[in-house]
């Protein structure tokens, strides 16, 4: 088995259909929909098509958890003992189990909400963050950026479950949220330990994280305004080791990502 498995080699059964983020960005409807006033984009039961939007997001969580599982798994394998400390690999193996459980939870929640496996297309940009050749960059991409996004998504879903009175959704998301806070904290701790005497490597890793965080903001998918379906979960991020400055930076990156997407749509018209 090779080291460094590219995203196009992720193995899936016949139910899964892959899409690229460019399909979404270049969708000709983007500009037209921008002309409509759809109101708040936040995922709430009162919003139009809330059930289908929640199902769509649930499937996105499901495929995201598969990729997080694969990313953690690859980190146990891709690096030799001299590249990644033994304890780091143990943490990644633990994360594999957690992500595996998250996939199981997501499948059960999909059943509960009436979503079928493979019903929605899968983009693999989450796994792409797990392909960095430096384990420190990978930790930033996976544990701080991807798992940080997971905190935001799970908190949004938990709030949706809470406000809609769905006991199953709220229960499951709260448990997964607990795991994700652990994973982000794990990433924050390892980042500090592995770059303690290497400020250059630290800066490179943080720069990589900024890039990934901007990508994960997906042109306004995440943020802190009513325009963002996924809300930045400040309190849980803080619990996971993010400083206020770091959270502010992610909020700004998200806003920038939205502006970039709007400019891209305007430019393509």
């Amino acid at each position: 088995m090779r080291k460094q498995l590219p995203p196009d080699m992720l193995a899936r059964d016949s139910r899964f259909v892959r899409t690229s983020i460019m399909d979404q960005v270049m969708d000709p409807r983007n500009q037209k929909i921008g002309e409509r006033d759809l109101g708040s984009a936040r995922l709430q039961p009162e919003r139009p098509a809330a059930a289908d939007r929640a199902r769509n997001l649930m499937h996105g969580i499901f495929t995201g958890e598969i990729q997080a599982l694969e990313g953690a798994g690859r980190t146990t394998f891709d690096f030799d003992d001299d590249e990644a400390p033994f304890a780091l690999k143990l943490d990644m193996a633990r994360q594999c189990w957690d992500e595996s459980r998250h996939v199981e939870i997501s499948v059960k929640l999909g059943d509960w909400m009436g979503t079928e496996i493979g019903e929605y297309s899968e983009a693999v940009f989450l796994y792409e963050a797990a392909c960095a050749p430096d384990p420190v960059l990978r930790l930033c991409g996976v544990n701080r950026a991807l798992e940080g996004l997971a905190i935001d998504v799970f908190n949004t879903m938990k709030e949706f479950g809470d406000s809609s009175g769905d006991p199953v959704l709220e229960f499951c998301e709260d448990w997964m949220l607990a795991d994700e806070v652990t994973h982000v904290k794990m990433g924050s701790d390892w980042l500090r330990r592995m770059t303690k005497d290497d400020p250059e490597r630290l800066e490179k890793a943080l720069e990589f994280q900024r890039t990934v965080d901007k990508l994960f903001s997906l042109g306004g998918f995440r943020g802190e305004t009513e325009d963002n379906p996924i809300q930045l979960a400040r309190n849980f991020r803080s619990m996971a080791g993010f400083s206020t400055d770091e959270i502010d930076e992610i909020a700004e990156l998200a806003a920038q990502a939205k502006r970039d997407a709007e400019a891209l749509v305007a430019g393509s018209s």
């Binding site: 199902r55 009175g165 769905d166 006991p167």
Partner: peptide
């Protein structure tokens, strides 16, 4: 199940 979930969402769990 898709329809049942929507029904619960607006009709009650």
């Amino acid at each position: 199940q898709r329809r049942r979930y929507t029904f619960r969402l607006y009709g009650g769990f």
